[in-house]
Amino acid sequence: MNYWLMKSEPEAFSIDDLAQRPEQTEHWDGVRNYQARNMMRDEMRLGDQVLFYHSNCKPPGIVGIAQVLREGYPDFTAFDPRDKHFDEKSDPQQPRWFMVDVQLVRKLKRLISLEELRLHEQLEGMKILQRGNRLSITPVSRAHWEFILGLEGENSV
């Protein structure tokens, strides 16, 4: 099993939006970065666990857990000229962009903020904490995953 952190701006798609979808499941579309695309297409597997992270908000942080319910498949939003994620260079015969389906496992008892994550040397090397990292999807080590979930019961910073 692999572990991931997936960022979403809550104004665009929040953990509450995922909770309201049928079967609390939704496709993770609109990723337009090749490195993140490759992870979804080539590395994410059914049952992989996901830290759902709210970004570009105050405060940013981890708000829930999801799981991969469907492995990578072509992102159909790239083919629709009316969709905000349309890519005129993407071809259904040779898709450029991929997505996965995720299902909510649970919301966290509390937000674990980026500021709080930065306080723990045990999380050194975690991609979300690296300066300049703007990827919307990053791998998470099992040790980091377990440490972060251990923070959930602690008082927030």
Rank of each mutant, 00 (worst) to 15 (best):
P60E: 02
P60L: 00
I62H: 04
V63F: 02
V63W: 00
V63P: 11
I65W: 01
A66G: 12
Q67H: 15
V68P: 14
V68W: 03
L69N: 13
L69Y: 03
R70L: 10
R70C: 09
E71G: 08
E71Y: 06
E71I: 05
G72L: 05
Y73H: 13
Y73P: 10
Y73D: 12
T77L: 11
T77V: 12
K84D: 10
K84P: 04
H85N: 15
F86A: 06
F86P: 12
E88S: 10
E88W: 01
E88F: 01
E88M: 08
K89C: 11
S90C: 11
P92W: 05
P92G: 07
Q93F: 03
Q94P: 04
R96C: 07
R96I: 13
W97R: 09
W97P: 08
F98I: 01
V102G: 06
V102R: 13
V102D: 07
Q103F: 05
Q103P: 07
V105F: 08
R106Q: 06
K107R: 06
K107I: 02
K107Q: 12
K107L: 03
L108N: 06
K109R: 06
K109W: 01
K109P: 02
R110G: 03
R110C: 06
L111N: 07
L111G: 02
I112W: 00
I112N: 00
I112V: 08
S113N: 05
L114Y: 00
L114G: 00
L114F: 00
E116S: 01
L117A: 05
L117D: 03
L117F: 01
R118P: 04
E121W: 05
E121N: 15
E121F: 06
L123I: 00
L123M: 04
E124A: 15
G125P: 12
K127Q: 10
I128K: 01
L129Y: 03
Q130A: 08
Q130R: 14
Q130T: 15
Q130P: 07
R131K: 14
R131H: 13
R131D: 11
G132N: 07
N133V: 14
R134G: 08
R134E: 04
L135C: 03
L135H: 10
L135N: 08
S136W: 03
I137T: 09
I137V: 15
T138Y: 01
T138C: 14
V140N: 06
S141I: 01
S141D: 14
H144K: 11
H144P: 00
W145K: 10
E146K: 05
E146G: 03
